[in-house]
């Protein structure tokens, strides 16, 4: 048996699952099956997956709490890093392919368009989280690590609002994401209050 345990054996599978949307997107782009406005499709789908994976990352804690399946924590870093990968892809597609040749417009867009400002801020917030996701950084930052990584809540909120704000009139889908984000926040709220009363020991980063 090359894997330590069942969770370690499942990880490569989750890794491949997380890569599937990217593979599908690449295949569709190369085969011209993204429809009449392929650039918009690339933007929307990469953004969708960044948000979904970020929300999935935030769902780990409530999942452990309600199901009691604590090993779920060992998938969290991978999900979070894939959220970052898709967010980077999303930003790259916007800057390189969509704005292609009109880069002078970029800074104006980031500064003037609230939804682009928020989207960019969400990505910026994810950068330090990805940078400090290693075992070594976790150890070095100690209890600060947990505090820093709460930025993920804000990044997800910004990401969802970025979506809400860009829609013209039909707000049902972004509202669903906002609902999920709110539910995930509510699901951890009482726990947090309990921790605040008790010792901080339970907040220490989990090693996986």
């Amino acid at each position: 048996m090359i894997f330590r345990d069942r969770i370690a054996a499942t990880k490569p599978l989750v890794f491949i699952l997380c890569l599937l949307p990217l593979a599908h997107l690449t295949w569709s782009a190369l085969h011209g099956s993204l429809g009449p406005d392929p650039v918009a499709q690339l933007e929307h789908r990469s953004g969708d997956w960044a948000l979904r994976l970020l929300l999935a990352t935030l769902a780990i804690t409530p999942l452990r709490r309600f199901s009691g399946w604590h090993p779920a924590i060992r998938f969290r870093r991978m999900l979070g890093l894939f959220a970052f990968v898709y967010a980077c892809l999303h930003l790259t597609i916007y800057v390189v392919i969509d704005l292609g040749g009109f880069w002078s417009q970029l800074f104006g867009e980031i500064a003037k368009r609230p939804y682009i400002t928020l989207g960019f801020a969400a990505w910026l917030l994810l950068v330090p989280l990805a940078a400090t996701s290693t075992q070594r950084m976790m150890r070095r930052l100690g209890r600060h690590w947990q505090r820093l990584h709460r930025l993920a809540y804000l990044a997800a909120l910004f990401g969802v609002l970025h979506y809400v704000w860009l829609v013209k009139a039909d707000h049902r889908e972004p509202a669903l994401y906002l609902g999920i984000w709110s539910a995930l926040m509510l699901a951890r709220w009482p726990r947090r209050a309990r921790y605040a009363r008790g010792s901080g020991a339970a907040m220490a980063p989990v090693r996986n």
Binding site: P38, D98, G100
Partner: peptide, 25 residues
């Protein structure tokens, strides 16, 4: 005159055939 949420300075042209990922703006 921009839309309050996005720029109207440029547009993505949906035209032509073939591989059309780049240079549509």
């Amino acid at each position: 005159v921009d839309h309050p949420r996005w720029s109207q300075q440029t547009e993505r042209r949906i035209a032509g055939t073939g591989f059309n990922l780049f240079g549509n703006r």
